[in-house]
Simulated scan of single mutants.
Amino acid sequence: MTDHADLVRDAADALLDAYRDHAPIEPLAARFADHPLSTAYEIALAQVQDWEKQGDVVKGHKVGLASRAIQRQMGVDQPDFGHLTASMFHLEHAPIPAGTFIQPRIEPEVAFVLARPLRGPGVTVAEAAAAVDFVLPALEIVDSRIRDWKIGIFDTIADNASSGGVILGGRPVPLVDVDLRMAGCNLHVNGELVDTGAGGAVLGSPINALVWLANTVGPLGVTLEPGHVVLPGSMTAAVPVGPGDTVVATIAGLGSVTAVLGA
């Protein structure tokens, strides 16, 4: 009988192979039907540890499935989190090489950059806000190593919260200078307005997602570190994109950020 550690390792290896081969795999959830969600996080962490052994570095975290729009789109009812590594960050306006992703979708977000460490449990909104150095407009490219995005909560957690890429805007804004709850967002793809949203769609306010993250990862031994980027969740539904697309998110009070997908 296959033991727990072997099951986790096999699933992590299958996802790592999908990254390498750009070939999605079938959903994992069926073979882990009797396992808690903590097993999915073990699978994700095994991949992160492999990336670190290869020289990649954790540069932050993301909260996924934070808005009602995304939860409805994905058929889930709770947030999750994933790790952001250095290799996932791409420069604004610089073409992202074709073939970087398998089945990408893009989401506009507010990025928190931390000045002080945050570690739960027990982190309050006030403590989270005090730990933020500044905020930036951001685009997150989500991607799934699961075929046709046929994911439930177990599969997206195991797949590092469907993380793909991050593009940050270049104008830091102090948190006190913007009301994130009321900040509206327009998302354009190739000059066409494809969706709108607001910060209040993200757990009532993006800062609530930061609190949720700190208090969720703290008991797992994870501290949100100074300088790290935290993506709190999408302000709109995720929009499919492909080679040659140019995406611009404009967020009130923060300005705009542009992602260019190489042809």
Rank of each mutant, 00 (worst) to 15 (best):
Leu45Asn: 01
Gly204Gln: 08
Glu127Trp: 00
Pro137Cys: 13
Ala94Ile: 15
Gly200Lys: 14
Cys185Glu: 13
Ser163Phe: 00
Glu140Ser: 08
Asp13Gln: 12
Asp159Ala: 01
Phe89Ala: 15
Asp179Phe: 11
Thr246Ile: 15
Glu107Gly: 03
Ala69Arg: 13
Val222Tyr: 00
Gly120Met: 01
Phe154Thr: 13
Val135Thr: 01
Ile43Tyr: 07
Arg116His: 12
Ala46Ser: 05
Glu127Leu: 05
Val8Lys: 04
Leu15Lys: 07
Asn215Gln: 04
Lys150Tyr: 00
Ala5Glu: 10
Leu210Ser: 04
Gly233Ile: 14
Val8Arg: 06
Pro24Trp: 09
Thr196Cys: 10
Phe101Ser: 05
Ala94Trp: 13
Gln49Pro: 00
Glu127Met: 09
Ile96Thr: 14
Val222Glu: 02
Leu224Lys: 02
His61Pro: 03
Thr100Cys: 07
Val178Tyr: 02
Phe101Asn: 03
Lys150Thr: 05
Ile251Pro: 05
Gly221Pro: 10
Phe154Asn: 11
Gly191Arg: 14
Ala111Asn: 03
Asn190Ala: 14
Trp51Phe: 13
Met235Trp: 04
Ile153Thr: 15
Ile146Trp: 01
Val178Glu: 02
Leu175Arg: 06
Asn208Val: 07
Met182Phe: 09
Ala18Ile: 09
Gly75Phe: 08
Gln78Ala: 15
Leu261Gly: 07
His93Ser: 10
Gln71Ser: 06
Gly75Pro: 08
Asp3Glu: 12
Thr196Ser: 14
Phe112Cys: 04
Pro172Phe: 09
Ser87Pro: 00
Gly197Phe: 10
Met1Ser: 14
Ala5Gly: 03
Val247Trp: 12
Val248Cys: 13
Gly262Val: 11
Gly221Phe: 09
Met182Ala: 15
Ala161Met: 03
Asp133Gln: 12
His4Gly: 02
Ala33Lys: 07
His35Leu: 06
Asp195Val: 01
Arg20Glu: 14
Ala5Lys: 10
Pro79Gly: 12
Asp13Ala: 14
Ile25Asp: 04
Met88His: 13
Asp17Tyr: 05
Leu7Met: 08
Gln54Ile: 02
Pro240Tyr: 08
Ser67Leu: 07
Pro137Ala: 11
Asp3Ala: 05
Val260Leu: 07
Tyr19His: 10
Pro226Lys: 00
Val48Lys: 04
Ser205Asp: 15
Thr246Gln: 15
Leu7His: 00
Gly164Phe: 00
Asn215Glu: 04
Pro240Met: 10
